[in-house]
Amino acid sequence: MLIETILDMKGHDVAKLRPERRVSAAIALMAERRIGAVVIEDRGRVVGIFSERDLVKLLAREAHAALDSTLSSAMTSPVITCRKEDRLDQVLAVMSQRNVRHLPVMEGESMCGIVSIRDLVRHRLQEKELEAATLLDISRMQG
């Protein structure tokens, strides 16, 4: 399965903020949308990503001043991305190797969506269930 197929099913909406915004704005947006990461974009270019892990690192480092910090000081950059032509298994491998849970999906220089490890695992499980059902049907027809 291609990443493009997953985006077509889940949608292309991405939560984005500018790098000069405060961490508190990102937390509010993540809570409102019930998501684990916000893409940081500057003049239409992806410059970072701010995730739950970035928040934990920031709190450990700055505690009291964390919420007033700018996203540019707390985001992960450069951003690891994938392309909509990538295969699900390839992207899962990258996420595992690089220890990330969210990848913006790029089409050239433009972001066309974002996928999370949850999205990919859900679709991988659906693939496996379909394979198992197909094999069971074949075995019943031959038996």
Rank of each mutant, 00 (worst) to 15 (best):
L29N: 00
I35L: 13
I40L: 01
L7C: 04
E41W: 02
A25R: 15
R34H: 14
I40G: 00
E41L: 02
K16I: 13
D8S: 13
E20I: 10
E32Q: 13
H12Q: 14
D13H: 08
E41K: 02
V39I: 12
A25M: 13
V38D: 01
E41S: 02
E41D: 06
R33C: 06
V39L: 05
A37R: 02
R33F: 09
E41Q: 05
R34L: 08
D13C: 07
G44E: 13
D8Y: 15
I27E: 07
K10W: 14
L7A: 03
H12F: 15
M9H: 12
I27H: 03
L29S: 04
I40C: 02
S24M: 12
E32M: 02
G36W: 06
S24V: 12
R18A: 11
A31I: 08
S24D: 05
V23D: 06
I35G: 07
A26M: 11
E32F: 05
A26R: 08
E4G: 06
A31Q: 13
L17S: 04
V38W: 01
E20P: 00
I3F: 09
R18G: 08
L7S: 06
G36T: 10
A25D: 15
K10H: 06
R43D: 11
I40K: 03
R34Q: 14
A25Q: 14
E20R: 05
D8R: 09
D42I: 03
L17F: 09
V14S: 08
A26V: 13
R45S: 09
R22E: 11
I35M: 13
K16F: 07
E41G: 01
R43A: 04
I40M: 01
K16N: 04
R43M: 04
I27C: 11
P19E: 07
R18Y: 14
R45F: 11
V39K: 01
I40A: 01
H12K: 15
V38A: 05
L17M: 12
T5L: 13
D13N: 08
V14D: 07
L29M: 09
K10T: 07
I35H: 11
D8V: 14
D8P: 01
R34G: 08
R33A: 12
S24P: 00
E20G: 01
E20C: 00
I3C: 05
E4Q: 12
A15R: 06
R33Q: 14
R22S: 09
L29I: 04
M30K: 08
R21V: 09
D42M: 06
I35P: 04
I40D: 01
I40T: 02
I35V: 14
I6G: 04
I6H: 06
K16Y: 03
L29K: 08
E41P: 03
I40S: 00
D42W: 14
I35K: 10
V23E: 06
V38N: 01
I27G: 02
E4H: 09
V14K: 06
G44P: 12
V38Y: 01
G36E: 10
